[in-house]
Structure formats: C-alpha cells, structure tokens
C-alpha cells in the first residue's frame, strides 16, 4: 500500500493531506492527483472566504452589504445560512459577526443575497473556514475512491477517514506538554484555545459583548464534520466551561464529544 503526503498554504496556515491507497487506486499518480485537487480546493475556498484578501467574495460582501443586498453564489449562501443556524442554535455564541456586535446579517434565500442590517457589521469566517475547507476536501476524497485519509488544517482542525489515526494534543499554553491522546476514527476534531503563549489576551470574542473572552481554557470537540466541530469548539469556548455544560445538557441528540484543557 502506498501513502502520499502533500501540504499547501492557505487561510494563513498550512494544510496537510495524507492519503493511503485502496481499491486498486493506490498508485502514486492517482494519490498525487487527488492530493493536488484537494490543495486547489482549499486555495479556491481561501480566495472565496478570506476577509483579508480584497479580491475575495467575502471582502466584496463586507464592502458592499451595508449599502445594498449583495448577490452571492449558492455555495457561499449555503455556508452563510449554516452560520446563521449555528448562531441561533448556540444562543448567539457562535457568531461570524462577533467583532461587530453580533447578528446584523439578513439573508434572503429567494435572491441568494446578503444585507447588513447594522452598517458596522463585518463578517469573519475565520472560525469556520478551515473546517469547511476540510469537509470540501473530504468530498473530493469520497469522489475519487480513497478510503483512508487524514486532512489537517493548521493543526487546530483535523478530519480522518478509515482506520484510526492517532492524534496527540499539545497544551495551548505549554507546547511541550501532551495533554491528550486520541484515535480519530471517521470523525473530525477542532480545538479552540482562548489564547496562545505569545498572546496576552484572547482573540476569541464574546459576540454578546464584543470583548475578548477572559478564560485560559481550550475546548476540544469531536464531531461528524469539521465544520460542526469548529462551530462548537468556538461556541463552547465562548460560553465558558460552566455555561457550556448546561447548554450541552439541553441538546437532545448531540453526537458531540467535548473535552476541556
């Protein structure tokens, strides 16, 4: 069996693709072509979603949606809808407009358009983009007959397919310390930390106050998709440990696995 690895830079970080062949599709030529296609997909999404790249669709929305309804493509609209649903189901703690007071985004499905109801609103998909990119990468993996694969987005989001992938988790504030070992089997994980050693305050904002969160926690979530894992690791960290456990108890059929560090 052949294993192929490839990395690419996108979304301000590094993405790694590890593919193992199966079903007669285990030649290097095939695995390389699949890995390149995944890398190109991640870069396409970066060009679509980055708020820093002035030629992205996200930057266009942030520039124009305060003055008019901005028509967006169906893929981006579906992602924004998903974020809005996540905002509602997390009681406002997952919010792509957290930095500008939260909410303030009106979506119109009939015209596939976005309008800001608060002129200050700016969308930041940073908390979900990597997870979404991993999930899109997984669609390519499925289409091209790969049955054993690991995708990693910036070491904070990982999704595995097939037989167990062992994952070690470093402590966010003590990089030397491994705090957790797990076997990732057909699941995605996302780990959100309040801050890193070099930061004095968190860059995770409480959407209800637009202020940085004050804890020193890190929250690990295992879920079926990387997008879902990112939504919940962000939302739960923002809620804080105590509120989060109360909130989780209210979710009736949750497949989430949550750990705190």
């Amino acid at each position: 069996m052949y294993e192929y690895q490839r990395s690419c830079e996108a979304m301000g970080t590094r993405f790694d693709v590890i593919l193992r062949g199966s079903h007669g599709q285990d030649d290097e030529q095939h695995l390389e072509a699949v890995a390149v296609a995944i890398g190109e997909e991640v870069q396409r999404l970066d060009a679509l979603l980055s708020r820093f790249n002035p030629s992205s669709e996200m930057a266009r929305i942030n520039r124009e949606a305060k003055t008019k309804a901005v028509r967006v493509d169906r893929e981006l609209f579906a992602l924004l809808e998903r974020c809005e649903i996540a905002r509602q189901t997390t009681n406002g703690y997952f919010d792509i407009a957290a930095a500008t007071g939260g909410a303030g985004i009106a979506l119109d499905a009939a015209s596939c358009s976005v309008r800001f109801t608060n002129p200050a609103t700016q969308i930041d998909l940073g908390a979900i983009g990597k997870g979404y990119a991993l999930d899109c990468g997984f669609e390519i993996i499925a289409r091209f007959g790969i049955e054993h694969a690991l995708l990693n987005g910036g070491t904070s989001s990982v999704r595995g397919l097939g037989a167990a992938w062992p994952i070690d988790l470093r402590h966010p504030l003590q990089p030397e310390r491994i705090v957790h070992r797990l076997d990732l089997v057909n699941l995605a994980l996302s780990c959100s930390a309040a801050r890193h050693p070099a930061q004095t305050q968190s860059d995770v904002l409480n959407p209800l106050t637009s202020a940085p969160i004050l804890s020193n926690d890190a929250c690990l979530v295992l879920a079926e998709s990387a997008t879902e894992a990112e939504i919940y690791s962000t939302a739960l960290l923002t809620m804080g440990k105590v509120n989060a456990s109360q909130y989780l108890a209210t979710l009736c059929r949750s497949n989430l696995q949550v750990k705190w560090f």
Binding site: G24, D27, Q29, A33, V34, A37, G145
Partner: peptide
C-alpha cells in the same frame, strides 16, 4: 510543482 493531472474516479484496471 505537480503533475498537472486530474484524478480519475475509477481504477486503472
């Protein structure tokens, strides 16, 4: 730096 090739959804066989 890549083979400039698209993946094929069925095996070579």
């Amino acid at each position: 730096n890549n083979s400039w090739r698209r993946p094929i959804p069925i095996p070579k066989s």
